[in-house]
């Protein structure tokens, strides 16, 4: 048993144990409770629902690793979606061509990065608390979006966009592919790049990082820009999935992304945590909600269960830390 645990840790890392245990528990419980759980339909719905939350969670993950938070991700995603929508509308709406889509997507990414740039600059140069900076950015973007759309929807996009939200490639949903690409990119970024290394160092002690010659301001600005750009990807997927843009779409995801990060073992103070456990945690959350759905419960009960799950995981971590201390 012990040897098995050692091998598991060697292959996946010790921080994967919790999320994998939760995954196994969810699969077993719902597998026994509902005969329809292990069907393509369940996993299909998970595969299509996971990406938005998943990509937004990546956008939240990076700032948390620096010891911050980006509360503006959902509205950044909305604003990016809005940008794309406008470009499409300005180029003929439903008749817009792929060129317009490409241009719009680039601009959308730019808008996302720009919101991150402003936050990053304020945080890096004034050392204002990231919660406050991103919170005010969130209030600003929400206001700006509502002002520009007058609270309404924008819809009517060319048909070729729909597959980004609904299509499949080789049997795998396109949005899931995008999520997986983002997860892998973030994983490589964090584990292998200089920027990723610096992100961790800044998260656990920004001053010592600065003394060691890390350009802490540049890293902070880049991290928030990246966070904004990733949020923009989520915004583009949301546009394709709903075939419309509305300010407030996905708003309820905001605190869920924070929850998913903590569930995946990200240190709330920054400096520690990896992408893959967070990805598994996301799958667990989505399976939970789909499983509960099968049992006749609604999304609200799932939300509550998510909260309970976080508490249970934190209590288990506390208990295991205590246990390790006792056996030492």
């Amino acid at each position: 048993m012990n040897a098995l645990a050692t091998r598991f840790n060697a292959i996946f890392g010790a921080d994967m144990a919790g999320p994998f245990a939760a995954l196994a528990a969810v699969l077993i419980v719902f597998g026994l409770a509902s005969p329809q759980f292990f069907t393509a339909a369940t996993f299909g719905s998970v595969a299509f629902q996971l990406p938005e939350l998943g990509i937004l969670t990546l956008a939240m993950l990076l700032p948390i690793l620096t010891g911050g938070l980006n509360l503006a991700i959902t509205f950044t995603a909305n604003m990016a979606g809005l940008t794309l929508a406008w470009v499409l509308q300005a180029n003929g709406g439903a008749d817009a061509g792929p060129g317009a889509f490409l241009l719009g997507s680039l601009l959308a990414l730019g808008v996302g990065a720009a919101s991150g740039l402003v936050m990053g600059l304020v945080i890096a140069f004034t050392r204002a608390h990231p919660i406050l900076v991103s919170l005010s950015m969130m209030i600003f973007l929400r206001g700006l979006g509502e002002f520009l759309t007058r609270g309404g929807d924008i819809s009517g996009f060319p048909g070729f966009i729909a597959p980004i939200g609904h299509g499949s490639l080789l049997g795998i949903p396109v949005p899931l592919l995008i999520l997986i690409a983002c997860v892998l990119a973030c994983h490589v970024l964090l584990s292998r790049s200089k920027l990723g290394f610096s992100t961790y160092m800044i998260g656990s002690n920004i001053e010592s990082a600065r003394y060691s010659g890390i350009n802490t301001r540049k890293v902070l600005v880049l991290v928030y820009m990246l966070s904004g750009a990733i949020a923009a990807v989520a915004g583009i997927i949301m546009l394709a999935r709903f075939n419309s843009v509305r300010i407030g779409h996905g708003e309820s995801y905001l605190l869920i992304t924070v929850l998913a990060c903590f569930l995946g073992g990200i240190n709330p103070f920054g400096g520690f945590g990896r992408v893959l456990p967070v990805f598994v945690a996301l799958v667990v959350l989505q399976l939970l909600s789909s499983g509960l759905n099968l049992l006749g419960a609604n999304q609200h009960l799932a939300t509550a269960v998510w909260g309970i799950l976080l508490i249970v995981v934190m209590v288990l971590r506390w208990a295991s830390a205590k246990f390790i201390k006792l056996t030492k």
Binding site: V133, S136, F140, R142
Partner: peptide
């Protein structure tokens, strides 16, 4: 519709300046 935008901008500026 513009209220929140302006309020958000004010808070952002205030936090920036006070920090």
């Amino acid at each position: 519709f513009a209220f929140k935008m302006i309020v958000g901008a004010i808070i952002l500026v205030a936090i920036t300046l006070s920090s």
